[in-house]
Amino acid sequence: MDTSGSKWNLIVDVANCTNCNLCVLACHDEHVGNAFPGYSEEMPKHGHKWIEIDRRERGAGPMVDVAFLPKMCQHCDEAPCMEKAENGAITKRDDGIVLIDPVKAKGQRHLVEACPYGAIWWNEEKQVPQAWTFDAHLLDDGWAEPRAVTVCATAALRSVKVDDAEMARMVREEGLEELRPDLGTRPRVWYRNLYRYSKAFIGGSVEAQSGGKVDCVAGARVILHRNGARIAETATDVYGDFKFDHLDPDSGAYRVEITADGHPAKSVDVTLGESTYLGEIRL
């Protein structure tokens, strides 16, 4: 038993995930065909994604961005699945890891529904609910980190074993977020740059005509208003492009005001649902 008080946490940097799927494959490699008594039953060869990559495409061509979001068991401190588990089938270890006992959990199909993150999978053949174990069997064997972290080549995944105060400091300083703070489950998986997945942008391309040619307008001043208040300002780049990010989806009416030397000012109204590319805006 760990008495130092340090606990495992996983940090996912959404901006660095490229959907290479190495974490998914490493999880398959570790668990398909391998049972680890006390930790996990074998994972079915297909259909289970203990690590699953969700995606969000924002905008429309040519102003598009795409974010990938690795999801897995969040190893919650207030894990809803633990409450629903019968005969203590799910336990929270001193190091923060939540484990589904493959023997005690047998037949408890309802646990799949108990996880609000959709991170528990039902193994039909073994009749057991399963989730990403943080590779606890390897950590207990002296491995420095879970396999998904080792294989990640773009620093999208990082595991740290620190006490909760230190983790709180990292959350503050690195701007880490919970995937679903509304659930109040106190997860141990933290997300960085989550806005790439969860927020929306308003963007556009400013152009102007002169001498029979249309050209991009660089350096135009673009101001974003909401409810009559100015909330952000930016300037167009050499392609005339501007982008206001970190906006809440479905957050209603905005006004974009564009001014550039030698051109009349222009404003565009937009009601934001999903991310919106306003297209070409002619001054």
């Binding site: 152009e207 040619k213 249309v214 050209d215």
Partner: peptide, 11 residues
Amino acid sequence: PAKTVRALARN
């Protein structure tokens, strides 16, 4: 768009 090519070329 021509304008994009021109902007790229200049940059």
